[in-house]
Each structure stands twice: as structure tokens, then as C-alpha cells.
Amino acid sequence: MGTIFSFEYMIKSFPTLLSMVDVTILVTVVSEFFAIILGCIIALTRINAIRLLDKVCAVYVSFIRGTPFLVQLYLICFGMPQVLNYFGMENPRSIPGILYVFLVMSLHEGGYIAEIMRGSILAVDKGQMEAAKSIGMTGYSAYTRVVLPQAFRMAIPALGNNVVSTLKSTALIFNVGVVDMMRRAELMGSFSYRHLELYIDIAVIYICLCFLVQLGTMMLERCTRMKNSTVS
């Protein structure tokens, strides 16, 4: 091992690591999709004070917010197979690890998005719901056609932040056996002993991804603001 830092190795490794970025993106997109659905359901359950279920949701949200993500990851990925096994499933460890990861991340981000959406749904003027009801819309239509679109628009910056945080959390999933950039870097480093170069590559990839998400968020925000806004 000659030089302290090999620029050449860093450049050379970059494409190899970047080739694993699809796992990161896939996990982010899939989990964020289910997390938004889950978050909306929880938010609506709490806002409409649906008996018992709203208490369950409140406990759920405080559990998600009150425990480290890594603990939740281990709980599901290592704990759940044990439970499935107990309930008679033959070989729960044969389920691909990435499916467990989809599950944990959706559950985790869903808890955060529930709070984001709750805030923004409550911020939609009450009169919007009343107007929808007054023309005979069902509660479901009133939410999907009138209240939620406005709530989402208000939530765009916060949801963007949430996507960024989901993205960054994906750096932990190699701990449960999913092969992503982090895992690849670990393997490559164990041969080359050039960890610094590899993790700088990874940091660069994450920075670029986060930047793209923030850019997308800003553009989305701008084009919805131009069209219309709730301030009247």
C-alpha cells in the first residue's frame, strides 16, 4: 500500500458502485409509495377519530418515531421470520431479504408521513370539506377530489424531505443481507483495503441522489404554486 489516497482507484471503482444504485432507488421508490398510502390512511383515521383504530394508530406512530430505524429493521428482518415460523410457515428465510426491507421501510416512513399528512390535511380550510359535502359528495370523494389534493400540495416540501431521509436510510439495509452499494463497497474494501476511496464514491452518489430529489421537489412545488394556491 503506497499512496495514502488513490484517486485512480476512486474513479475506477465509481462505475462498479454506481451499478448498484438501482437497489437503492428501487427500495426508496417502492417504500415511499406504500408509505404515502399508509401515511394517508393513518392520518385520516386519526383525524376522523375512528374508534379504537385511532388509538392504535397513535401508538403505532409513537413507536415508529420513538425507536431507531436500525432496531425496526432488525425487528422485522430477523424477528419476523421467527414469528412466521411459529405460525407454521415452512421456510420464512427463503423470502428475499429485499421484501422484508420494503416492509420495514414502508412501515417506518409511513409513520412519519402520517404526521406530515395529518398536519397538512388539518391545514386545508374546513369550508372545502363542507362545500364538497353540500353538493352531495361522499366522504371518500370529498377527500380524494378536494381535500387530499390540496393537502398534498401543502405537503410537497415535507414529503420531499421524507424522500431524502428514506434515501439515506437505505444505507443501512446491507445489515440485513441486501446487496447494495454499501455491501459492494464493503466487499471491495476487504480486498483492496482502500475504504476511504470507496466510501467517498458512495457519499458522492448519495449527494447526487439527494440533490436530484430536492431539485424535483422544488420544481414540483413551483409548478403547483403557479397553477393555483390555497391562500385566498
Binding site: 369550508g127 372545502q128 363542507e130 362545500a131 353540500s134 352531495g136 390540496q150 394556491s229
Partner: peptide, 17 residues
């Protein structure tokens, strides 16, 4: 009842979206 009546509100309440 709601489908057979309509309301005009003091603060308009047009659907903002």
C-alpha cells in the same frame, strides 16, 4: 338531502384545486 339541496357560502368555498 344533500343531493337535492345546494349551498352558497359566505366565504364562497370554491374548491381551491
Amino acid at each position: 338531502v344533500r343531493r337535492n339541496t345546494a349551498m352558497v357560502f359566505q366565504n364562497y368555498n370554491l374548491f381551491a384545486n
